[in-house]
């Protein structure tokens, strides 16, 4: 359960995968970071909009969720490595039998959650498989 300001504050990051980039060390961050762990106080951070294409690094299918998500079970959760480098956690919409390590995914706009029947709706990014994309990856 989030709250209105907490959701609102991250709308651009959640809708459009806006993260950060340190122009000093050329490292990309999503979720966004204020401080670059490589350069710390000497970092030069700027916003960066990620394309959203990525690869499934690992995944699970959740059958037992918290109250906010119990209507959605079963659903797939994955750690996805974006093509630009950073890794994020997100849902992959497909059958539990379909998801695999190494699967290429692309972003879609979906409902992430709702504050009950009366509260606001949290929109944002989930992922879907790019058809026929599973490739062996070296981790």
């Amino acid at each position: 359960m989030s709250t209105v300001p907490r959701f609102w504050r991250h709308i651009s990051q959640r809708y459009n995968l806006v993260g950060t980039h340190c122009s000093k060390c050329d490292e990309y961050y999503y979720p966004p970071r204020t401080i670059c762990p490589n350069c710390r106080r000497t970092a030069q951070m700027e916003d960066h909009k990620f394309k959203g294409k990525g690869t499934v690094i690992t995944y699970t299918t959740i059958y037992n969720a918290t109250d906010d998500f119990k209507r959605q079970t079963p659903y797939n959760l994955a750690i996805i490595e974006l093509d630009e480098g950073p890794r994020l956690t997100g849902q992959v919409i497909c059958s539990p039998n379909e998801i695999e390590i190494g699967m290429k995914v692309k972003p879609v706009f979906r409902i992430l959650g709702k504050e009950g029947d009366r509260g606001i709706i949290y929109y944002g990014t989930k992922f879907v498989p790019v058809e026929g994309s599973v490739q062996p990856i070296t981790l």
């Binding site: 907490r6 979720p31 037992n64 918290t66 906010d68 998500f69 959605q72 849902q91 949290y122």
Partner: peptide, 11 residues
């Protein structure tokens, strides 16, 4: 991470 894991349904 409440904002970047749980928000997406992580348990």
């Amino acid at each position: 991470d409440r904002e970047w894991e749980c928000f997406f349904g992580a348990t």
